[in-house]
């Protein structure tokens, strides 16, 4: 089980058994990104060995450069079918009005070895 609450500088990371979905949402610029993401990697290694399927839902509007490195490693691990047989589907959500969040998602889509969908959502609290 993984359930890491969000802080000002780190995202929420949570797995829902019921929906078989891992959610990562918030902003990511923790003091030490590698230490912060370590529990996610440990959890994921375990899950990939025993699961046939996993949904991953990502909604990160900003991440610093070291978190970007971690996220890329995370996506590569999901896409590494030599290491596991778990089928993965990933959606990356971004707030429609936030260009930089879309840019971030698209750069990952460009670079990551695993395919994913990018879906906009509307934030009704924003008027712009």
């Amino acid at each position: 089980m993984i359930d890491i609450p969000a802080t000002k500088s780190s995202p929420e990371i949570k797995y829902s058994e019921q929906e078989n979905t891992l959610t990562i949402s918030g902003e990511s610029y923790p003091e030490n990104s590698f230490a912060f993401f370590q529990p996610l990697f440990e959890w994921l290694h375990e899950q990939l060995e025993r699961k046939a399927h996993l949904h991953v839902s990502i909604n990160i509007s900003y991440m610093n450069s070291s978190s970007t490195k971690c996220m890329l490693d995370f996506l590569d691990l999901l896409g590494d079918t030599r290491k596991h047989n778990c089928s993965i589907d990933i959606t990356w959500q971004y707030e429609r009005e936030n260009d930089r969040a879309l840019e971030l998602a698209e750069e990952f889509q460009d670079e990551a070895t695993v395919p994913f969908r990018i879906l906009p959502y509307h934030n009704p609290d924003r008027h712009q």
Binding site: N32, S33, F34, N64, S65, S66, T68, K69
Partner: peptide, 11 residues
């Protein structure tokens, strides 16, 4: 023991 990915300045 890296604390950063060495990409900060490029970013």
């Amino acid at each position: 023991d890296a604390t950063g990915a060495g990409v900060g300045l490029i970013d």
